[in-house]
Structures are given as structure tokens and as C-alpha cells.
Design a protein around this nucleic acid. Structure first.
Length: 179
DNA sequence: GCATCGATGGTG
DNA sequence: ACCATCGATGCA
């Protein structure tokens, strides 16, 4: 199947977050192509979004979010879990968090952003890696029949932004982190 | 079933 | 002093 082009990512994070559902994430580390169907995402929509790391401004960590779309933004949270995000937009601090995927040609627990990174072997060494490269890419898949929209998880600190409806998942998938 | 808690280290 | 988490634990 065709690889999603750069133009797929140079749109606002909310649009990309919805469009990513059903697409096929391919992780090619140590010559093993692990294929997954994306079933749950969250949009972090820029500097004005208090839940978004980019709201802290440009720092060493957030610099990637202000960079080129279609690259991986991977950071460590709670000292032990890697989070896989994809930069979107036009150098304006937007990204989409991949929260859950369905394993297609391997086995493992991928219901949650920390768990999917652990299962797939994704760590910060892949930070800023291109989604149009040799190790990471996304192929065209089939869109879900129905998308459910909710508030984002784990962002209660974000004032009025904690209520923003920016989490999306495939309503029929059994691989969502929580309903 | 649920709520609560602690692990563990980068970040500002 | 926080955390874009998760598994274990306690109690029902």
C-alpha cells in the first residue's frame, strides 16, 4: 500500500488525528517490519493549547514540535514511558499522540501510549525520525466506520483545555486503551 | 468492580 | 515540583 505523503501531515493536528485512524503504522527496527492499525489518537493543537507541550514555548524538548511536519516527537513521561507523537501543521507546535494500535503481524499489548511504545521497541532514540523514512512510515489503510470523540486523557492540569474534545478512536475497535 | 498509590527520571 | 502512564493493591 502507498506511503502517506508529507502533505498528509501539513494540516492541523485535529484533522490529522482523525485521518490517522485506520491507517497502518509500520515500524522497521532490526529488520523486522511490525505493522499496526492505528485505532486511537489525541490532538495537541499548538501554543495556545495548555495541554500541549508547545504551550511552554520553544525549549530543547519542544523544538521538534515547531519543526517539520511528518516527524516523530518522542518523549519520556513518568520516568519510564515513551510517548509516540507525530508533528503536524506548519512549524506551529502541533502534534498527534498515538494512544493505541491493533497489532497486525505480531503479538503484544498495544492498548495505551506507553504500552505500544514498549511493545514496538520505540524509544527516544527515534525522536525527530521522519515518518517518510526507513524505520518509520505510515501506509494508507481503511477509515473506521464510526469515530468516537472524547476529552483527552491525563491532562486535568490544563485549565479550560482539559475539556477540549480532541481524543478520537475507532468506535468498533477492541484495541482502544479505554472506552 | 472500583479508587488510590507508587515507581522513576527528564524537564523547566 | 511537576508530569500526555501503568500495574499493583486494597476494599467491596
Amino acid at each position: 500500500m502507498p506511503v502517506l505523503p508529507l502533505s498528509f501531515y501539513t494540516r492541523d493536528a485535529e484533522t490529522v488525528a482523525k485521518k490517522l485512524l485506520g491507517q497502518i503504522l509500520v515500524v522497521n527496527l532490526n529488520s523486522l517490519e511490525q505493522r499496526s492499525r492505528i485505532v486511537e489518537t489525541e490532538a495537541y493543537i499548538g501554543t495556545h493549547d495548555l495541554a500541549c507541550h508547545a504551550s511552554k514555548g520553544r525549549t530543547k524538548r519542544t523544538e521538534i514540535m515547531f519543526g517539520e511536519a511528518g516527524r516523530a516527537y518522542i518523549y519520556l513521561t513518568y520516568g519510564m514511558y515513551n510517548m509516540l507523537n507525530i508533528v503536524t501543521g506548519h512549524h506551529d507546535g502541533q502534534a498527534v499522540l498515538i494512544r493505541a494500535v491493533e497489532p497486525l503481524n505480531y503479538e503484544g499489548d498495544t492498548k495505551g501510549p506507553g504500552k505500544l511504545c514498549k511493545t514496538l521497541g520505540i524509544t527516544r532514540t527515534l525522536n525527530n525520525e521522519s515518518l517518510l523514512g526507513e524505520k518509520l512510515w505510515i501506509e494508507k489503510g481503511k477509515a473506521p466506520k464510526k469515530i468516537t470523540t472524547t476529552t483527552r486523557i491525563g491532562v486535568d492540569y490544563a485549565k479550560e483545555w482539559k475539556d477540549a474534545l480532541l481524543r478520537f478512536y475507532d468506535a468498533d475497535s477492541l484495541w482502544v486503551s479505554r472506552k
